[in-house]
């Protein structure tokens, strides 16, 4: 990801989108085995010690969760959440921390007067705006937003997306948007990666992928979008596989209408098919 860029991560429920988000923040449950590399500014996050990681969390990389209702400590006021977060990273006076809190909340249109309220005194939309303000108060360079609007109604959703767009422009912040809503991706993102059963099956620019998808899964996913003139709902047959026992070869082969015997055995590598667009399909060139 480049600075100021927005990348979308899409996929069905249970394909590992949220896990990816938590992995980037290094907040997977304790004793989780992590393989591979997670590079942030050329440093592998997996090699950092706990304190170095803690300094990055929240200040450089921030995360917005999908369920704002349960993400705030019910025993702390909004003010306490902000002061604690700011002071966990920077040595600033209480006064300055408060000023920043006010600024962050105002930008999210949360009234300053409610700073001493507790989480249970806010609505869902309000809490999500507080969560976003909390994630942005230290102006991180990378924001991971894990389905930030899923639990909200469409009006609040539109407001929040607009706010995220503004922030990107104002702070040159990179945004990793995790969603299953392809409409949002088309509207907000520069690039997109399609996830299936824990693996990236296709990635590229939004225009390329929406106009000329290569991987059969991406094609089927795009076909299942509902338009105004949709007469019949189209879905992808079958269920996403159990990730504890993933299928052999290409993980999509049991549901793929084009699957051939070789797909059962050979794991397809992520190959580039056009400039900036790659897919993991053995027969990708047939679909180009």
């Amino acid at each position: 990801m480049a600075g100021g860029e927005t990348v979308g991560i899409v996929g069905e429920t249970g394909c590992g989108k949220s896990t990816l988000g938590k992995a980037i923040l290094s907040i997977l449950p304790p004793r989780t085995r992590v393989t591979g590399h997670l590079l942030f500014r050329r440093t592998d996050l997996n090699t950092l010690d706990r304190e170095a990681l803690r300094r990055l969390q929240g200040e450089e990389i921030a995360l917005i969760f999908q369920d704002p209702m349960t993400r705030l400590n019910p025993l702390m006021t909004i003010e306490q959440h902000f002061l604690e977060t700011i002071r966990a990273h920077q040595k600033v006076s209480k006064r300055e921390a408060l000023e920043r809190t006010m600024a962050a909340l105002t930008s999210m249109r949360v009234p300053e007067s409610r700073i001493r309220n507790y989480p249970h005194e806010f609505s869902g939309g309000m809490r999500q705006r507080i969560m976003i303000a909390l994630a942005l108060v230290l102006t991180p360079s990378l924001l991971v937003a894990d389905e930030p609007t899923t639990s909200l109604d469409v009006i609040v959703e539109a407001q929040i997306l607009e706010i995220l767009q503004d922030l990107k422009r104002n702070y040159r912040m990179s945004l990793l948007l995790i969603t299953h809503n392809l409409g949002i991706v088309a509207e907000v993102c520069d690039k997109v990666a399609v996830l299936y059963a824990g693996k990236v099956v296709e990635q590229g620019s939004v225009t390329d992928i929406f106009a000329r998808p290569v991987h059969p899964y991406t094609r089927l996913l795009l076909q299942s979008i509902i338009h105004l003139d949709t007469k019949e709902l189209r879905s992808i047959d079958g269920q996403p596989p159990d990730l504890l026992f993933p299928p052999s070869g290409c993980r999509f082969h049991p549901r793929c209408p084009y699957a051939k015997p070789v797909c059962h055995e050979k794991v397809p590598p992520l190959e580039q098919f056009r400039s900036g667009q790659s897919a993991a399909c053995l027969f990708g060139k047939d679909f180009v």
Partner: peptide, 26 residues
Amino acid sequence: GADYVEAARARGIRRRAIVMRYAFKN
């Protein structure tokens, strides 16, 4: 294992503070 503890970890709150202010107090 509560959601707010996970969220606090993501904000880089120190482990001690998480154990006392989040987990223990609740």
